[in-house]
């Protein structure tokens, strides 16, 4: 990581100009934690880094709409700000709980919500949680902006659908009082590790009955992925052992899980069945 330029534009327009040439060595930078790791490993050799910390606008701030319908989290909001926000704790408690085992507090002091999403590492904890919460992102660029569901951001292993010059301005999370959510970080090597599987579940339950749900699997796949078939097995049904078993089998069938250093494919498939079922039970119990 030698010989690059570090820019800190004060406005979004300046940032767009600095990012304009589409060179792969030119990248926007949020907290910079993931970029620094890639640079130190010489995986990424930058020409220019454009820090977004001073651009302001929708990138800053953490607020709830006046009608209480959506929470808007600026792209440069740090994890620590989210974790310590009473408003987030009230409306999105699963997000705050996820923080407890997410990297460490120093990373959470620095890492930004937008940078985290744009990194598109499938092992990250928050992206599947946003997906389970039916969150969207506001993507801004010189030519305007668009809003897409978080799940449409991921194109593959460390790949996003962001175009040149597009930045993640904010994350928009609907407030859904009738839903409960959880994230299960399944580690297999030691207590504190990257997950072998991340299972994010959000459900609208009535007793043991599942009115609606969103199931997301991360870490074991090339990108966080909705488990549609498994959702279909559970949507509208009771949380019976039979239904959960069917959902588990459906999840294993639809998820293309491969072996890696955290476990063999067969073992991770087994863990998916077990933890999916346990996650549903824990939501119903809570």
């Amino acid at each position: 990581m030698l010989g690059f330029e570090l820019s800190e534009p004060a406005t979004l327009d300046e940032a767009f100009d600095l990012l304009a040439d589409g060179d792969p060595g030119v990248r926007p930078m949020g907290g910079g934690t993931a970029l620094m790791l890639m640079m130190k490993a010489q995986i990424f050799k930058p020409e220019r880094l454009v820090s977004l910390r001073n651009v302001g606008g929708c990138f800053d701030g953490l607020r709830i709409d006046a009608d209480q319908s959506h929470i808007r989290i600026g792209g440069m909001t740090t994890f620590a700000e989210i974790e310590r926000s009473p408003m987030v704790l009230q409306h999105l408690p699963a997000v705050v709980r996820t923080m407890k085992t997410l990297a460490n507090i120093r990373v959470r002091h620095v890492a930004s919500v937008g940078g985290n999403l744009a990194h598109a590492d499938p092992h990250l904890d928050l992206p599947p949680v946003w997906m389970a919460h039916a969150a969207s992102i506001r993507i801004v660029s010189k030519s305007g902006e668009r809003v897409i569901p978080v799940e449409d951001l991921f194109a593959g292993y460390y790949e996003t659908t962001l175009g040149d010059g597009e930045l993640i301005g904010e994350v928009i999370v609907p407030v859904r009082p009738e839903w409960t959510s959880t994230y299960v970080k399944v580690t297999t090597r030691s207590a504190h590790d990257w997950p072998a599987l991340g299972i994010a579940v959000s459900a609208n339950l009535q007793g043991q009955r599942v009115n609606d749900l969103r199931l997301v699997l991360s870490a074991a796949l090339d990108r966080p992925t909705r488990l549609d078939a498994a959702e279909n097995e559970l949507r509208g049904s009771d949380l019976s052992e039979a239904a959960l078993k069917r959902a588990g089998e459906a999840a294993v069938a639809e998820a293309d899980i491969h072996s890696d250093s955290r476990g063999s494919a067969a073992y991770k498939q087994h863990l998916l069945r077990v933890h999916l079922s346990r996650a549903m039970h824990s939501l119903a119990g809570a």
């Binding site: 491969h258 072996s259 063999s264 067969a266 073992y267």
Partner: peptide
């Protein structure tokens, strides 16, 4: 003594061994 090796040992003893690694 990984979690997976413990689980595999249990499954083997129960007569339901976990398939060996196929796509590593």
């Amino acid at each position: 003594l990984t979690q997976e090796s413990i689980f595999r040992a249990i499954q083997k003893k129960n007569g339901t061994p976990l398939p060996e690694d196929d796509n590593d």
